[in-house]
Amino acid sequence: MTASNTTMVFASPATDEETDKLAASDPAVPWQTVVWDDPVNLMSYVVRVFREYFGFSHEKATQLMLAVHNDGHAVVAEGPREQMELHAQAMHDYGLSATVRKAPR
Results as ranks from 00 to 15, higher is better:
53 Y>S: 06
99 T>L: 02
43 M>Q: 05
94 Y>L: 12
105 R>Y: 08
39 P>F: 11
4 S>L: 11
12 S>Y: 00
27 P>R: 03
35 V>A: 14
80 P>F: 00
69 H>D: 13
61 A>Y: 01
25 S>M: 07
66 L>D: 11
75 V>H: 04
51 R>A: 10
22 L>F: 13
99 T>S: 15
2 T>G: 05
69 H>E: 13
25 S>K: 08
46 V>W: 01
42 L>E: 11
93 D>I: 06
103 A>I: 02
73 H>G: 07
92 H>A: 12
48 R>D: 12
54 F>W: 02
7 T>R: 11
80 P>W: 00
70 N>Y: 06
72 G>T: 03
42 L>H: 06
97 S>V: 11
79 G>L: 09
88 A>P: 01
40 V>F: 02
23 A>H: 02
2 T>E: 10
24 A>N: 03
56 F>I: 08
69 H>C: 04
101 R>E: 15
6 T>N: 05
83 Q>L: 11
100 V>H: 02
8 M>E: 13
29 V>K: 06
88 A>C: 05
51 R>G: 08
27 P>E: 09
92 H>R: 14
23 A>E: 11
42 L>A: 10
9 V>T: 10
16 D>E: 14
105 R>K: 10
28 A>L: 08
52 E>L: 15
95 G>T: 07
97 S>N: 12
104 P>Y: 02
84 M>N: 10
90 A>I: 04
29 V>I: 12
89 Q>D: 11
22 L>W: 06
3 A>L: 12
74 A>R: 00
27 P>M: 08
49 V>F: 02
59 E>V: 10
19 T>P: 01
95 G>Y: 02
42 L>Q: 11
60 K>P: 05
6 T>V: 07
61 A>V: 00
12 S>Q: 11
38 D>F: 03
39 P>H: 15
47 V>I: 07
84 M>V: 06
19 T>N: 13
66 L>C: 07
77 A>F: 03
46 V>N: 09
75 V>T: 06
51 R>V: 00
82 E>D: 13
87 H>K: 10
71 D>S: 06
11 A>R: 13
57 S>F: 04
79 G>F: 00
81 R>A: 09
54 F>S: 14
14 A>N: 02
27 P>L: 03
64 L>C: 04
54 F>R: 12
13 P>F: 10
12 S>H: 05
91 M>L: 09
82 E>V: 06
31 W>F: 15
54 F>T: 03
47 V>L: 04
86 L>I: 01
56 F>Y: 07
55 G>S: 04
45 Y>D: 04
14 A>C: 09
1 M>T: 04
